[in-house]
């Protein structure tokens, strides 16, 4: 097996407690672990934003009444980007699907501007191949963050 295919088999795994502060720390740990990929600052910004939005949703909705919940994140770097899988044991998505995340109209009075609903819009905008499954009481969300990884490190 070549070094590069060994790397393709390599998963990065993270277990992050389902609270807002733990998510903040978990994001820092995740980005720090991904520094080995030598990506641009812009790419790290995109990755952190997508991961933050997904984890905030899990904390806010799936684990709304489960302060002891744990978020499991697996990241597999490949040439076509970062393949991400989130697992949690919280409430299922409403209607069993990922919210559409359409932006509300901004052509309105200041008082009517939306204060939320940006999260799923950003996830759908920045992630590819988004899929959601409910299996054995777990939420499983998979997607790819499409960034070029031309220089996968040799492990």
């Amino acid at each position: 097996m070549s070094n590069s295919s060994q790397h393709h088999d390599k998963y990065m795994k993270f277990a992050i407690p389902g609270t807002e502060i733990a998510v903040r720390n978990g994001l820092a740990d995740t980005i720090s672990a991904l520094r080995v990929l030598n990506l641009s600052g812009e790419d790290y910004g995109t990755i952190e934003l997508v991961l933050a939005e997904v984890m905030n949703n899990i904390v806010e909705h799936a684990y709304a009444d489960s302060p002891d919940g744990v978020i499991e994140l697996t990241i597999q770097p490949k040439e076509r980007g970062l393949y991400c899988t989130f697992n949690d044991n919280g409430h299922p998505m409403p209607d069993g699907t990922v919210p559409l995340g359409n932006l509300s109209s901004l052509n309105c009075e200041v008082d009517d501007l939306p204060e939320g609903g940006f999260g799923w819009f950003l996830i759908r905008d920045l992630a590819r191949d988004l899929e959601y499954k409910r299996k054995c009481g777990k939420n499983i969300l998979t997607f790819r963050i499409a960034i070029e990884l031309p220089n996968l490190p040799v492990s």
Binding site: G45, L49, A52, N56, P114, E115, G116, F118, G119, L122
Partner: peptide
């Protein structure tokens, strides 16, 4: 860094 919650704030 800002996320959608920060933007909402």
């Amino acid at each position: 860094f800002i996320d959608s919650s920060g933007l909402g704030a």
